Amino acid sequence: MREREDEWTGLMRSAMAGDDAAYHRLLRAITPVLRAAARRGLARAGQPPDQAEDIVQDILLAVHLKRHTWDANAPFAPWLFAVARNKLIDALRRRGRRVFVNIDDFAETLPEGPRAETAAPAEVEAQLKTLPARQREVLQSIAVESASIRDTARKFAMSEGAVRVALHRALASLTARLREQ
């Protein structure tokens, strides 16, 4: 392990001095290690490991773009693994905490009965009327009319950020009110 880290550090120093062959050897040496680390990280997070290649590409691109930030007097591996960890975290944040399950595996356990009751349209309308006008309009546009944030912003002459804030506040207000009931 120590030999490998020393080799990587030497290759990176040579690459930083302009040796393209050393840089290519370094990239070939670190790629399988990064791929294995990405797969392990995805598996720990409950994500499919087949997404590892995208993360490896992100890491390699970051290494290339940020190589000037590496301190040539320090070992290369800790810097590399910090970049890799950050790229893995970024990828997991983009994906969210979703777990993919094939619904067909559970088809026999799903109830066949009627659907759960939903609020009557009059109840929904009554709850919407309790919101301030702008929040109600934004929520109506996005949730009922299926308009995008951008279209809603144009419709009400608001910034997209203001639309998101109004939507968030409307949903938070409705959630709090429904929890009280």
Score class of each variant (00 low, 15 high):
Asp105Cys: 09
Arg169Cys: 07
Leu174Lys: 07
Trp79Tyr: 08
Ala166Glu: 06
Asn73Thr: 15
Asp54Ser: 08
Ser173Leu: 07
His68Lys: 11
Val33Leu: 12
Val33Cys: 09
Ala77Cys: 06
Met1Trp: 08
Tyr23Leu: 12
Pro78Tyr: 01
Asp54Ile: 04
Pro48Met: 02
Ala45Asn: 05
Ser173Asn: 10
Leu27Tyr: 11
Thr31Trp: 05
Asp71Thr: 01
Val144Ala: 10
Pro48Trp: 03
Ser173Trp: 03
Arg39Gly: 01
Arg67Cys: 02
Ala176Arg: 15
Ala29Arg: 10
Ile103Trp: 08
Ala120Leu: 13
Asp105Met: 07
Ile59Phe: 00
Leu80Glu: 00
Ala116Ser: 11
Leu60Asp: 05
Glu53Arg: 09
Val63Trp: 03
Ala143Ile: 05
Phe156Val: 05
Ala91Cys: 01
Leu92Trp: 03
Leu174Met: 09
Ala107Asn: 02
Ala37Met: 10
Arg179Met: 08
Ala22Ile: 02
Ala43His: 13
Pro114Phe: 14
Arg25His: 06
Arg154Asp: 13
Gly113His: 09
Leu26Trp: 01
Leu34Ile: 05
Phe106Ile: 11
Ala45Ser: 11
Arg85Phe: 06
Asp90His: 06
Leu110Gln: 10
Glu7Trp: 10
Ile30Phe: 05
Asp71Pro: 02
Pro32Ala: 04
Val99Arg: 14
Trp70Gln: 02
Lys155Val: 04
Arg134Asn: 10
Arg4Tyr: 05
Arg169His: 10
Gln57Ser: 10
Ser148Pro: 04
Arg150Gly: 11
Ile30Gly: 00
Lys155His: 13
Trp70Ser: 03
His68Thr: 12
Arg134His: 12
Ala84His: 00
Ile89Lys: 10
Ala72Met: 01
Ala74Gly: 03
Trp79His: 01
Gln57Thr: 15
Thr9Gly: 00
Val144Phe: 14
Gln181Asp: 08
Phe156Pro: 01
Arg35Gly: 09
Gln47Ser: 11
Arg115Phe: 13
Glu160Ser: 09
Glu145Asp: 14
Arg115Met: 12
Asp151Cys: 04
Ile59Val: 15
Glu117Ala: 15
Leu42Met: 04
Ser14Tyr: 01
His24Asp: 15
Arg179Cys: 03
Leu80Gly: 03
Ala119Ser: 12
Ala176Trp: 02
Val99His: 13
Val163Arg: 06
Pro78Cys: 03
Ala176Gly: 10
Ile142His: 02
Leu60Arg: 04
Arg13Ala: 00
Leu61Trp: 09
Leu131Ala: 07
Asp58Cys: 05
Lys66Val: 00
Ser148Thr: 14
Ser159Gly: 11
Leu178Phe: 07
Val165Thr: 12
Arg4Glu: 14
Glu3Thr: 09
Asn102His: 04
Ser141Arg: 13
Leu42Ala: 01
Arg164Lys: 11
Asp50Phe: 11
Gly161Lys: 12
Val63Asp: 03
Gln140Cys: 09
Arg85Ala: 14
Gly161Ile: 06
Thr175Glu: 13
Arg154Ser: 10
Pro75His: 11
Glu5Ala: 11
Val33Thr: 12
Ala91Ile: 01
Lys129Glu: 14
Glu5Met: 10
Ala176Lys: 14
